[in-house]
Design a protein around this nucleic acid. Structure first.
Lengths: 217, 217
DNA sequence: ATTACTAGTCTTCGAGTAC
DNA sequence: TGTACTCGAAGACTAGTAA
């Protein structure tokens, strides 16, 4: 079931006039002139909304008695929740860093299938087999990461050795490109270099060279 | 300009992914599969939204960079405000009263064109030339009225005499019918009788006789 | 890979009316 | 007054395809 904009306006009209738990009495032509629809459209749409169980409707000789059903209220609430989220989201804190040439270490780890599988599952996409190294200010990093959700990547063992767990923090690189900061869960040497993974080869996609300024948000 | 449901979904998609003040990069087909539209529809609708100045759009060979304009944000905010109102409205307090036969006094005052004009302007409809008298409990009345918005009706003078200002409080009679309680602004004798005006002849419309119970909300 | 035009199909609208 | 059916017109959608 897909409700149209006009359907939604009608639902809103009923909600406004009846409230969530009361009824409103009105005729199709009265509603029509209020919403700038035709009388016929209101008639058709009221039937539809009642059929879909979004409203309760009783038709009398002099108009309709209308109220919202639980399902109707739910639809309105869903909309409200979506909009609330959009307007309540805090301003993104940004973190700036400068590109560094990596040692190829990141590439090795990120390529391990024990990690790759989890990246795909938790970030939704296959990750480019390499990392972008950024030099940042440690103090800023802590503040930045504390505003982000932690995603845990568990450790695993191969026949030869074991690999520790890590944390991912989703970011937008230069405001556009999806990526994630990856840090070992228990790092013994705090560092001012972070590694960013992404479905894309970031150096190429963003045309980066060493010592270029990159923003994460 | 009337935006459709699909337009709105698209706007919402951009708002969710770009946030209010940032951009998002995506292709028409990517958005299409996300929203279950066709690629062509997304293309058409993005053009439309950009034309209507609801979004800013830059088209590149590998997709679009999209963000909300102030006008786009405003539309979302309007929706949010409407829904907030619906969900924040307190439960209506009700007031019960019993019908009384009036003295015809109310009818006289309500009929004066100096008042009638204001009724029409402030309540939106021509008022039936008569009042419904209800006997209520004064304590309940105060609480009830304090939850309502006051609408002021100004006094006026004719050649013969002058008429004082009054207050209106919009109500629903028996949960259905629009009406308003009217009280003189400076009443010298507090009373347990109130007068209700309405676009309709309430006694007839609600099939009332003396001493019938009527609810106001 | 993209975006977006064309053209045919499907959906939705409202004027005219019936009841 | 009401609601709501029919039916022709207008609008919106997508498959095919060009660029």
């Amino acid at each position: 079931m897909m409700i149209s904009e006009k359907d939604f306006s009608l639902l809103l009209f009923i909600a406004k006039n009846a409230g969530l738990n009361d009824v409103v009495k009105s005729s199709t032509s009265e509603i029509a002139s209020e919403l700038n629809f035709s009388q016929q459209t209101v008639s058709r749409k009221l039937s539809f909304l009642a059929e879909e169980n979004l409203i309760e409707r009783k038709v009398f000789a002099d108009g309709n008695i209308l109220s919202l059903t639980e399902k109707g209220k739910k639809i309105l609430l869903e909309r409200k929740t979506e909009l609330d989220k959009i307007f309540s989201s805090k301003k993104r804190i940004k973190l700036s860093g400068k590109t560094q040439s990596g040692l190829g270490e990141g590439k090795y780890y990120v390529n391990l299938s024990g990690y790759q599988k989890q990246f795909k599952k938790k970030l939704g996409k296959k990750i480019f087999p390499g990392t972008l190294n950024l030099k940042i200010k440690e103090l800023e990093l802590n503040e930045f990461l504390s505003s982000k959700e932690k995603i845990l990547v568990t450790g695993f063992s191969t026949e030869k050795r074991s690999f520790g767990p890590a944390l991912l923090f989703k970011v937008k690189v230069n405001g556009l490109v999806d990526g994630a900061i990856i840090v070992p869960e228990r790092t013994n040497h705090p560092s001012d270099i972070i590694e960013v993974i992404s479905p894309f080869f970031l150096r190429k996609k963003l045309k980066l060279k060493d010592n270029y300024l990159v923003s994460l948000s």
